[in-house]
Amino acid sequence: MKILMLASYLPYPLWDGGRIRLYNILKTLSKNHEVTLICEKRPKQSEKDIREVGKICKKLIVVERPDVWSLRNLAKTAFSLNPLLVTSHSSKKIKEAIEGELNAEKFDLIHVETFYIMENLPEVDIPIVLTEHNIEYEIYAKYTKKAKFFAKPVLFADVAKLKRLEKNFWKRADKLIAVSAKEQKIMGAGTQLVPNGVDIEKFKFKKLEKNKKVRKILFIGDFKWIQNRDSAFFIIKNIWPRIINETKDKFDLKLWIVGKNIPESIKKLKNETITFDENAPDQTELIFEDSDILLSPIRVGGGSNFKILEAMASGVPVVTSRLGNEGLGAQENSEIIICDLPEECVQAVLKLLNDDYYFEKIARRGREFVEKNFDWKIISKKLEEVYKSVVK
């Protein structure tokens, strides 16, 4: 098939879940299909990053993304029916690039990653497949509830715009794709489930060491996302002090918080048992190789968490919330450990630290689970089935 793919980001380096998903989908799809990608580029991304993505596409068109918080965008949002998220991704250059490709080539379908880039797509008679990584209006609504009281009216108005437009774009697509069952249910009948995946060749099962005294408990994520800021704060304030109090005479524990854009409000909580690392390797397989447990109590958001899949593939036991497992469906206390309350999370980590047999069971079964269900080759086949269903 000849596929025109639209995205609001250049999928390299593999900084976050969206980039990981799109990069691996492109990599596998390009073996059997001709894919043209039109996407936005952030200022931090280099020509080298563009070349890396160019290797896995038939054609790559990159447009510089304008400043989200420009006065122009803010004013435009205030006096329009579009939310800031859509306004900031509306681009004359992208519209021109899309129209140019549609006039020059005959595509079998258009694949759109996230609805807020669809504003740039003209009316077409080509099938459109839209993938949603999250229900954006739900995430923004949860954030707005926690905002300062004086900001809430403006933010709630933006959420209302977001909800209306997101649902309108769902109607415009010929087929919708969700990455977890929760989103699939909200998006309605006919929505297909194509979950996130993991590169099981890149993330190798690590050697398990018994009776270790020095242990690293990992939290990893990009802190521009609300859910990662919330989770890190929750760990530091509600979970970590209790773990240290229970283990100070038995283990030398370190909480290793890895990610870009860590806010000062979180960094100021540092102590001798907590390390903040914004310069860890981009090769996250090296991070998991140096970790013992992934602690990821996700309380906001949706989809399926790539870092959880990568940890499981690497043989790093995962302690997460029911929300964190929602897009995965791993078996509790066999392939993954589930906790929602702080004390439950404390006890889960302590059991892994104190019981080597239990630790190894979770690690090995977690790896088996992702091999069977989340290899990118399996995920891409599911996506190809969706394509076939809309292409006449």
Rank of each mutant, 00 (worst) to 15 (best):
I3C: 14
L14A: 02
D16T: 02
N24S: 09
S30I: 11
V35L: 10
I38W: 05
C39A: 11
K55L: 15
C57K: 06
I61R: 04
R65L: 12
V68Y: 12
W69C: 00
R72W: 11
A78D: 02
L81N: 14
P83L: 04
L84P: 08
S88V: 05
A97E: 00
E105M: 01
D108P: 03
V112S: 01
D125H: 11
N134Q: 11
P153D: 07
D158R: 08
R172M: 06
A173E: 08
K175M: 13
M187E: 01
M187I: 11
Q192A: 15
N196L: 00
K202D: 14
K206L: 05
V214E: 15
I220S: 13
W225I: 04
K250I: 14
G259Y: 08
S265C: 12
I266K: 05
K270N: 09
T275Q: 15
L286A: 14
F288D: 11
S291R: 02
L295K: 11
P297F: 13
G302R: 01
A311D: 06
G324W: 01
I337A: 13
I338V: 11
Q347S: 10
V349R: 00
V349I: 11
D355Q: 06
A363F: 03
A363L: 02
W376R: 05
V390F: 09
